[in-house]
C-alpha cells in the first residue's frame, strides 16, 4: 500500500497545526436536522498529535485504473457516455503552508445531471442515467495537482425542511500524509443561487468558508467545443516543522 518514493521531499513527521473549529462547521447545527441527534454534546478532548495521528496510510498509483478519473466513461457502456454538461474539475491539494501535497488520494462522488444518485436508498423521481455511476478517484502529482472529467451534477430535493434543495455539488474525500488530516467536504459551483439557501452550506458560520468550497469557472482551461473547466483547490492541515519539535526525529 505505501509507496516509498512519491517525491524527493523528506517524509513529514511533525505535529499538525490545530484545527480552527470555528471555521469548520459545529457538530450541532439544528437547521440541518439530522445533526441534532448525531452531534456529541460533550466537549472534545484536545490532544497534541501522537504518532498514531501524525502517520497515515499512503496509496500507490497502482490502485488507479485508466478511467478512474473519467466519470463520463467509467460506468458507461462501450461507445456510450453519460448525459449532461461536460466539465473538467481540476486543482491542487495544498497544505496550510501553501505547499502542494503529492501522492494524496482524492475520492469524489456525485449525483447525475438530473440530481439522481445511484444508490439503493435514493428515491428521487429523476431518472438514473444508465451510463453514469458517479464515483471517481485520483492521486495527486508531484505538485499536488489533480484533474477529472465528469458531468455537472444537478440540484436535488431532500427531506429536511419542506422545500429544501441541495445546490449542485460534488463530494470529496481526501487523505494527506497523516490520519489527523482526514477530510471530507463538498465542492459547489460558482454562481449557483442555491448555495446561500442550503442548510448544509449554512452549517458554516463564515461566508468565506463557503467561498472556499466554491469552484470557479475557468474559461482559460475550458476545452472549446468540448468541456467547461472548474478550478477547485483543497487545503489540508499544515504541519509544524520537526525543527520546532523537542525530539528532532519526530515522535
Amino acid at each position: 500500500m505505501s509507496e516509498g518514493k512519491l517525491s524527493n521531499r523528506r517524509p513529514e513527521t511533525g505535529a499538525f497545526y490545530q484545527r480552527d473549529l470555528d471555521w469548520h462547521p459545529k457538530a450541532f447545527t439544528p437547521g440541518y436536522k439530522t445533526s441534532v441527534l448525531r452531534s456529541p454534546q460533550k466537549a472534545l478532548l484536545s490532544l497534541d498529535g501522537t504518532i498514531s495521528e501524525t502517520t497515515g496510510p499512503r496509496f500507490g498509483h497502482n490502485i488507479i485504473g485508466e478511467l478512474d478519473n473519467d466519470l463520463i466513461l467509467n460506468f458507461a457502456r462501450p461507445g456510450e457516455s453519460a448525459i449532461g454538461p461536460r466539465i473538467i474539475v481540476y486543482g491542487r491539494v495544498l497544505d496550510e503552508n501553501g505547499r502542494g501535497v503529492p501522492g494524496a488520494l482524492l475520492e469524489y462522488w456525485q449525483a447525475n445531471a438530473g440530481g439522481r444518485y445511484r444508490h439503493r436508498k435514493e428515491g428521487y423521481q429523476a431518472a438514473l442515467d444508465p451510463n453514469f455511476g458517479g464515483c471517481g478517484r485520483s492521486i495527486t502529482d508531484e505538485d499536488g495537482g489533480y484533474y477529472f472529467r465528469t458531468i455537472q451534477p444537478g440540484p436535488y430535493p431532500w427531506p429536511n425542511g419542506p422545500n429544501d434543495w441541495r445546490p449542485a455539488h460534488i463530494h470529496f474525500s481526501v487523505f494527506g500524509t497523516g490520519f489527523a488530516q482526514r477530510l471530507i467536504t463538498q465542492m459547489y459551483f460558482d454562481g449557483d443561487p442555491m448555495i446561500p439557501l442550503c442548510p448544509i452550506v449554512r452549517t458554516l458560520n463564515d461566508p468565506q468558508a463557503a467561498a472556499a468550497l466554491t469552484a470557479k469557472l475557468d474559461m482559460q482551461s475550458t476545452l472549446p467545443m468540448d468541456s467547461r473547466a472548474y478550478k477547485f483547490d483543497i487545503v489540508l492541515r499544515g504541519r509544524r516543522s520537526t525543527f520546532f519539535e523537542n525530539r528532532r526525529e519526530g515522535n
Binding site: H24, W109, Q186
Partner: peptide
C-alpha cells in the same frame, strides 16, 4: 492558507468510498 472546511459525507458516501458495496460494480 485556511484548511478547507469540512462538510457532511451525506447518506450516499458509499457511492464514492465503497462503490461495490453500493452496488456500483465494474468501476
Amino acid at each position: 492558507l485556511k484548511e478547507s472546511p469540512s462538510q457532511t459525507a451525506g447518506p450516499y458516501v458509499h457511492i464514492g468510498l465503497t462503490p461495490n458495496f453500493a452496488e456500483i460494480t465494474g468501476v
